[in-house]
Design a protein around this nucleic acid. Structure first.
Lengths: 212, 212
DNA sequence: ATCGTTATTGAACAGAGTGTTGATTTATAT
DNA sequence: ATATAAATCAACACTCTGTTCAATAACGAT
């Protein structure tokens, strides 16, 4: 397999053609709009192309179908989320201790909520009642669960008991629920507030005082 | 509107015709099977009727479409769940205190997990990755959330702060996550064990010992 | 066992959505 | 300016939908 490189003068590398990026952006926006309005099952490829103002053939040039487009947007998002996950797993106990001293929320958490806000149109469509159950689970298992694992004592990480597994399931679902609620109520709280709330929910115990 | 009752000898009241119940049961089973195998979007009304071994016209005699059938099964389930919710909201602090003394889990919680196991075929189909996001939220808000509200001090129930709202979202999503995981891993734990785990998750705080 | 009722069947139908094709036009990068 | 490639348009066979109808079968009640 001697694939002789065609040796272009300037390596394109990124997608060069503006038409492609324009079509994809239009389709992205149309999908999010329609999914928000009618749910993922409430519209057809025809509707999608009409909203995006482009030909149906163009759509099929890029994606295999509606779900393929949705999946594309989701993985794009999840890749970015992966960076946050990696950063959080590198957190030391020092970093955590620092937050209780300085009373400032974890910077990486604040940035995470900033990013979630930035992507709130996509998330609102996918996490909503008529959204994509698969995506919710991806986010739960690919972000929240990993974070909780990182907080566990190494002893439990190496030999998880049945209860530890439920413990993980409990907290990862819980944080996805918090994020979902924040998005659904219009993101009234600032990213800093949400980071603080997230920290506090980790340490609270029912019955304790809940005053803000 | 003087509706003269036709005065049948034995009031049918319940659905009399066996054909109806048979068709509905066949459709119920077929839906659950196919939804489990391929997800809610992975099959057509044709597939459904073929699996249920009845005519497509028969299906449309009973339901408006695939989603209508699913909704019917869901509300049937949620009605039953409502009874558990009511019973749990009547729990007194005495009942809770008793469990810590006798080391026995709350009977109503055990019965709840029994019922969930009984309905695990439906739940597995609806709560799975390719399930129905709407149903997940119904269960979260219609069971878990109400339970957590019941545990709150009345002070917070009457004037919920923003944090309290997130607190509710946190714990209700958490318990739905636990239930989902239990179902997905084949319900290895007994209902008693699950009731105990549920109680314990309410009282635990990260960092504490997690030994079973 | 018979009878009136009614659910089910099978076939057919129009309508909508899908996914693909080919020729044509248009926009793009160089 | 030109070669390249994306977008367009029309058409296609196909599947699924939701409804109709007459005919059949199963049902509950007498």
């Amino acid at each position: 397999m001697t694939t002789a490189m065609a040796a272009p003068v300037a390596v394109p590398c990124e997608e060069v053609d503006r038409r492609i990026t324009r079509s994809r952006r239009a389709l992205r926006n149309a999908l999010i709009e329609l999914a928000t309005e009618r749910g993922m099952d409430g519209f057809t490829v025809n509707d999608l192309c009409e909203r995006a103002d482009l030909n149906r053939g163009t759509f099929y040039n890029h994606f295999k179908g509606k779900d393929d487009l949705a999946l594309s947007l989701q993985t794009e998002f999840m890749d970015e989320i992966g960076r946050f996950r990696d950063r959080m797993q590198e957190l030391t106990l020092m970093d955590l201790a620092k937050t209780t001293v300085t009373k400032r929320p974890l910077p990486v958490l604040v940035e995470l909520f900033d990013y979630l806000r930035e992507q709130s149109d996509l998330l609102g469509a996918m996490l909503g009642p008529a959204g994509d159950a698969k995506f919710s689970q991806q986010l739960r298992d690919g972000l929240c669960a990993d974070l909780i694992w990182g907080l566990l004592h190494e002893r439990y990480r190496r030999e998880p008991t049945p209860f530890v597994e439920y413990y993980i399931a409990f907290y990862s679902a819980a944080y996805l629920g918090v994020i979902t609620r924040w998005l659904k109520t219009g993101m009234r709280e600032s990213s800093e507030d949400m980071a603080r709330i997230a920290m506090r929910l980790l340490l609270i115990k029912p019955g304790e005082s809940l005053t803000v």
